[in-house]
């Protein structure tokens, strides 16, 4: 698990650089390194489906960020109540860490006991659905309602983007 921790440290450093960098293009490239690191993490945790999706969507998002947003002169707000904001952020991080610790303490060890439902999927999935890719059999057969919701979300996203960016309804 050493390589996993090294990758996580790399991603945290990339995220900090992305926040602190003044140049927008460098910042977007730093965000891209975080996403590619996440794809490698999925590959190490033996989830190739997620790794493929993460890699492809990351490339798409980086292209959209570079082409669509970088050329606009976006307003920067560097002034403001710096001390108060930092204090509130650290307080919320502390509260969150305490609750997360209380919650994670009771969880089972990482990947140790296979849960009841997952055990049934592994044992009976191939016989019941005929698909050798278990992830595909779960998202398109056992949990197909999730996929229906995901398709609805994409449709709503397209309609929302079109409604925000179109020219017809905008007042001069």
């Amino acid at each position: 698990m050493l390589e996993l921790q090294l990758l996580l440290i790399f991603m945290i450093i990339g995220a900090i650089i992305a926040v602190k960098e003044k140049d927008l293009l460098s910042s977007v490239i730093a965000v891209g390194t975080v996403g590619l690191g996440l794809s490698l993490v999925f590959l190490i945790l033996k989830a190739p489906d997620l790794a493929i999706v993460q890699l492809v969507v990351e490339i798409l998002v980086i292209i959209i960020l570079i082409r669509a947003t970088i050329r606009r002169d976006l307003p920067f707000s560097t002034s403001g109540r710096w001390f108060f904001n930092t204090l509130v952020t650290f307080v919320f991080i502390g509260v969150f860490l305490v609750f997360i610790y209380l919650y994670i303490k009771d969880l089972p060890q990482f990947g140790q006991p296979i849960m009841k439902i997952a055990q049934r999927f592994i044992a009976e999935g191939l016989r019941e659905t005929g698909a050798t890719n278990l992830v595909s059999s779960v998202i398109l057969d056992y949990r197909a309602y999730d996929t229906l919701g995901e398709a609805t979300i994409l449709f709503t996203a397209v309609m929302g983007v079109l409604a925000v960016m179109r020219k017809v309804g905008r007042k001069k």
Partner: peptide
Amino acid sequence: HISPGGGFA
């Protein structure tokens, strides 16, 4: 349905 991948990717 055979190898990693699927409709979304």
